[in-house]
Write a protein that binds this DNA or RNA. Structure first.
Lengths: 190, 190
DNA sequence: GCATTTAGTATCGAGTCGATACCAATCGGC
DNA sequence: GCCGATTGGTATCGACTCGATACTAAATGC
């Protein structure tokens, strides 16, 4: 029974967010999925700003995402840059216009206002939702797209010096806060 | 900053649910919004099973919802019944087939599985999400569509005997658990 | 080297969704 | 009562999402 109620709650919240997002994108002629793509590209690292990564993130098919990107490029909100190593790969970079739109539209004003009344800045809620999301992603065999610094491959080498255990690349403090498509959550301590 | 993270979390959860829902509806040729409509109609009371109420619940326009209902009626998942009092109003009733589809499809299997691992049956999460939803609905000047028994018009008249302070109608125990479009949350105690 | 896999694009059709226009019934003044 | 305003619902249209399928090109594996 509790499962049904939780499901209904999440569905309703999702719809509300979507409606808000639709309204927020309307002045710019953007749909919810466009804003979501822009937001992802703004917060992902340099290995995860490709159509394929975005496809996994959004949970859509690559054909659908390809169309979305075409539209965003036409509107001048992002540009494509060929990868120097792998000539099949394309990197998606937000333009200044893209950043500006995002800054104006997300999160929607009403969402921010509704959240100010939340107890304890919503820390507990954030933790609970993260747990739920990880659980759902695990059940779906989906990537988690967490922040680099919370990944099990993340290694501390000194004050302000980090490294990725997977690519062996050094990481800056800013890097550690970006989303990574290779992210794997640290298994919870028992 | 915490607002951004919370927003991202909710957006992602919403997308995941939507993807699940899409998959769950596919075998029946139904879209997410169709399942949502069926679920609402299953759990709302007899004053709230109209196109207008569903429109408010889903946050769409009445034209859009009218189309959705046309499709569901064609598929034999619901039937329409004219109101005896107000001849403009139509009541939407799930058919057996509609109930069957819903029972099979929602909540999606993976969601149920993901939730079993949640601490404390998710009671705390449910409470937090309810608070967030109410807050968002208030900010949006939207109706809350809560269960009748949690409404400020709900009156206890004795063991198992209730009454709605708005319509003055007597309510059964089952009535008290159904969603109502006139629902207004009890203001939180200070 | 050659089959397989992976990254991305192109095209098509089904369907959502909002906007606009419309009709019928009810309600509110008076 | 009566007439304008409001409410409940439908119809139609166009923009857009999304999945499915088919395709190209580059990389990978054996």
């Amino acid at each position: 029974m509790a499962v049904d109620r939780l499901y209904a709650l999440l569905e309703r919240l999702g719809n509300l967010l979507r409606t808000e997002e639709r309204a927020a994108g309307l002045p710019h002629g953007l749909q919810p999925v466009h804003l979501q793509a822009l937001r992802y590209l703004q917060s992902c690292n340099r290995y995860s700003n490709t159509p394929a990564a975005l496809t996994e993130y959004l949970g859509l098919t690559k054909g659908t995402v390809s169309q979305t990107l075409l539209l965003l490029e036409e509107k001048g909100l992002l540009r494509k840059q060929a990868d120097t190593q792998d000539r099949r790969v394309i990197h998606l970079l937000l333009t200044e216009a893209g950043r500006a739109v995002l800054k104006e539209a997300l999160p929607p004003e009403l969402f921010k206002r509704a959240l100010t009344g939340l107890p304890g800045e919503g820390e507990a809620l954030e933790e609970a939702l993260t747990g739920l999301l990880r659980s759902l992603q695990a059940a779906n065999a989906q990537r988690s797209f967490g922040a680099c610094g919370t990944c099990k491959h993340f290694k501390r080498e000194g004050p302000g010096r980090f490294r990725c255990g997977l690519t062996q690349e050094p990481l800056s403090r800013e890097d550690s806060q970006l989303l990574c498509r290779e992210h794997e959550a640290v298994p919870p301590a028992h």
